[in-house]
Design a protein around this nucleic acid. Structure first.
Lengths: 225, 225, 225, 225
DNA sequence: GATGAATGAGCGTTCATTCAT
DNA sequence: TATGAATGAACGCTCATTCAT
């Protein structure tokens, strides 16, 4: 059974530069798969192909490892979307669809999506991370959506809806999909995910877009039902 | 069974029947407050006013205690909403608002809401519970909403939207509020929660309701925008 | 080799009252024998006949266990000597010999003596204990000796020696014996320890006792040879 | 020795000969400062300005490093004092004061003093070192003092005191000062250390020096009060 | 039934030592 | 020779679970 001693023991590899990313990747996968508490430090190390001691050479504690995983996973994501918004020329509805697409590419369709589930459970235990998340993720994202909505209203594309509530209604399905990829609520799966996203945003937009007035080209978007 | 009533001194046996509920209530509160892993068995016992040994007299393990908490908290909630749907007479939009209201009363505004956060993190570790949740909670709720939407479409109240996607868009803000009451995303707080709920459902309904044709009375719902 | 599983496993004994003392005794013995760092918590537990977990039921950390050992070992020792001094009637030289005797009985000839060796090495790492030791052990003991010397001088038994230096010269051989029972310097062993103690105190007393005259020779002391 | 000054590029080999001493100096400082267990190998290396691997190039283990530190620090100290004693001409009391002075210069006022504290705690774990210390430090020093006392007695300078006990009483304050510089017992500080030392030796000498007569009072010594 | 003292497997973390470069 | 990344045995401590009372 214990053929441990028989194996020739893999050689030590020196890769100081690559190690942090390897460890973060292994940790992200395990945190997402098993949650924070059930992820053991030697498991992370083994999955990254190193020993437990090596893990602690790069991250001084499990806490810090988790924080590093979150920061590395979520950093620089919002900035891109914001840039996009600045440069956008077309319809506001199109802008919102584009933002949704970016989100899907960078978060929704990646391990980062699963990280949100862990964050939901663990953020209260990591105040520092809580602040990081609020400042670096929530605030910019909220601003992004709010501004887009305001723009749509200003340009007469949308009815004057309450910004906060409309924003929440837009974000909820996206965020929920990231949080709960089939655990609590199975998302509809009759179409490829990117189409699905578009469909939902579309439904929501219908709820806020201006009707009576001069936005007939929107009706043509999908054939006016 | 025992000749309890004959004995002149029932010194400590009292409340024996209430014990399970008390333990479940204590466990629910702690699981919601601290998560599964961070909830310790002696804390549960202490909060229920008994000793650690007694807890194990009623539930053979922490796992089983958790399962019992989930079952006890979520059982019989769906049935009521289903009943409601059967008897409903008015507009489908009104029906959906009523279902939302019930959900808010029975889940959203109670500890059960917090339980969803824990479930999201722990369900994958409890396959048995996973099945229970899928069968007893998700399936009926999904059916409820789907049927209501179908009814609305059949009666010409709504456009013929894809059922699954519309259903998800309806449920997402409700479920998200239960899961994440301000941890990941702060819900809008400019109005009391029950009004807020109505506003969001309203926005969504706007996205699916039939326009051109004979559903003007819907517009009257809140003043025709 | 591993006949562990064959042994019938000793029964759990419940002795909440006795446990603290048993643990302190085991810990004292091991701390003295191996020092603070080399004493492992499960060793202490095993020597006390309990499991590692039980140790932590009574003392929340190795630090606290050590502090408790020191306090329990040194408390109430000084008070007795002080009482003695108050009531003493005879010669001051006799008083000093008596104090030395008490010290030998309560510290010098017991495990407490070995504890001083550990204290010497560890006190700098335990500031709280450092204060306890300074307040509860050093200060009273110093006062005790200083007052006795002053009394001897006042009563004309001793020459007017510098109090501090004489005090240190008196205490040094006693304390050194406690610290170093043969490790660094083998104490003379040609006579039973209590006699030995008396002999050394006697030598010191000779150095301070008043001689017949008014001690004019103090200046030319060594010209007498 | 090496043609160091001739070479135009001494890229890294320089100081190769000095390495052992630098490592010993760094290790001595840390062992004294923090004790054996709390001194970490990479700290020693860093303080010596080399890497951890280099340390192990010179000393195969922490144990051996410690032994080397002790040997290097204590070697050749006793021999000098012995020489001194051989050549001494004056009073024996003067000789003892001189030995004390040497001790103060070479041990008491240097890092070597602090090493004694560590030795006291660790010698039992290093039997080999124990033997070295007994043979190279204690035995010569004991001989030194014993011979001086015997000489004093032979020459009629001192009363015929028991040699061992007198020797211990002489050494105790010196050794205690080295061991415990204020940790367990604060030495008197009203005068500069070298005067202090003289004062204490003086007090002790008083206890053993021969008085004018044939010391008949020895029997009724304490009746003098 | 009820208690809570006792257990021990298991975790996060450290650090003396090794070895590929 | 010198480096410092890598190792892994070992420690302090936790906590779900057991069981004598």
């Amino acid at each position: 059974m214990t053929e441990k001693s028989l194996e020739p023991k893999p050689p030590r590899r020196r890769r100081k530069e690559a190690r942090p990313q390897e460890l973060l990747a292994a940790a992200l996968a395990l945190f997402v798969e098993k949650g924070y508490a059930a992820t053991h430090s030697d498991e992370v190390a083994r999955r990254a192909g190193v020993s437990k001691g090596t893990l602690y050479l790069y991250y001084p504690s499990k806490d810090e490892l988790f924080k590093a995983v979150v920061r590395a996973t979520l950093s620089n994501l919002i900035a891109e979307a914001a840039q996009l918004a600045e440069q956008h020329q077309g319809t506001t509805a199109e802008l919102l669809l584009q933002i949704g697409g970016i989100w899907w590419e960078r978060i929704g369709s990646r391990p980062a999506a699963g990280l949100h589930r862990v964050l939901l459970a663990e953020l209260p235990h990591f105040p520092e991370l809580q602040r990081f998340y609020a400042d670096e993720v929530v605030a910019p994202a909220d601003q992004l959506f709010t501004r887009a909505l305001q723009r749509g209203i200003d340009r007469g594309e949308f009815r004057p809806v309450p910004l906060d509530e409309a924003c929440y209604a837009l974000i909820a399905p996206l965020l929920l999909r990231a949080l709960d990829n089939g655990t609590l609520w199975a998302p509809p799966s009759t179409m490829p995910p990117e189409r699905l996203l578009a469909t939902q945003i579309d439904i929501l937009l219908r709820g806020i877009e201006r009707r009576d007035g001069p936005a007939p080209e929107q009706a043509g978007r999908r054939g006016a039902a």
